[in-house]
């Protein structure tokens, strides 16, 4: 039976992917007992790095959402000359190696920002915003055009239509885009190192702190990694719950 062997083949493929993608993450927790984890966090610098990561990621995400949402709406709903070019340029950081992004930021903004927390936010925003823009643009493009048109004929301005119809109906897609950008920002390493440096408490985010401990204190690096995994998983789960709940309510 053809369908039987195909079913088995796809099942095996999924099992292999699942194992390969989860085993390393599981290994982090297996190799770092809870006691080590807590003592590692007590270490000076670890908490600093974690706290800095959360602060800068939150700031970058706020900038991305506030600027990216209307920009994505424009890209999704209007046809204008060179639109395809604009979309390609906006997506460029997706394929840029992070180290190159760091060099590019240095070249553009100069060394004056280096070793400031602001530089970290700039680097995170640069590498993470395309993830949000892409997803948000797709979300707005899938909003039924007749809803937007109905809103206009019902007396709503373009701005009110955007706020009251486009955003609420695109929310699941916007949340997904936000989660992707957040994950990318939280894990950012190369661009931050090149552009902002690795100064403890100022520019040393959690990934940079992990790298610093990697050669000297592997257990501490492992513990910090475990915390980062937990935070990332919590964010992903929250986004899925929100998005899922909203999508189920809508359809």
């Amino acid at each position: 039976m053809r369908s039987a062997w195909f079913g088995i083949a796809t099942g095996v493929a999924l099992a292999a992917a699942l194992a390969f993608l989860t085993l390393p993450v599981v290994a982090i927790f297996v190799d770092s007992p809870p006691a080590d984890l807590i003592s590692a966090l007590g270490e000076e610098g670890a908490l600093d790095a974690l706290w800095l990561s959360l602060k800068t990621t939150a700031a970058a995400l706020a900038i991305i959402v506030v600027v990216g949402t209307p920009a994505a709406y424009l890209l999704a709903t209007r046809r204008f000359p060179a639109r395809a070019l604009v979309i390609t340029l906006v997506e460029l950081p997706l394929v840029l190696p992070p180290a190159v992004a760091g060099i590019a930021l240095l070249a553009a903004l100069g060394p004056s920002l280096t070793f400031t927390t602001g530089a970290v936010v700039v680097a995170l925003t640069f590498v993470a915003s395309p993830f949000y823009l892409r997803q948000a643009q797709a979300a707005f493009a899938s909003v039924d055009r007749s809803w937007l048109e109905a809103s206009r004929t019902l007396g709503a301005s373009e701005a009110r239509t955007f706020a009251r119809v486009a955003i609420p109906t695109a929310v699941p897609g916007l949340m997904a885009g936000g989660a992707l950008a957040l994950g990318r920002a939280l894990g950012e390493f190369g661009a931050t190192l090149m552009f902002a440096g690795s100064l403890q408490g100022v520019t040393q985010t959690a990934p940079l702190a992990i790298y610093q401990r990697f050669s000297t204190d592997f257990d501490a690096a492992l513990a910090l990694s475990a915390v980062l995994v937990a935070v990332s998983a919590a964010i992903l789960l929250t986004a899925k719950l929100f998005g899922g709940w909203d999508a189920a309510d809508r359809r």
């Binding site: 039924d144 809803w147 048109e149 109905a150 004929t153 109906t169 359809r251």
Partner: peptide
């Protein structure tokens, strides 16, 4: 001020 009834009605789903 046009009362427009769209094809498939275009009611806001949210």
């Amino acid at each position: 001020r046009c009362g427009y009834v769209f094809q498939d009605y275009a009611l806001f789903p949210h």
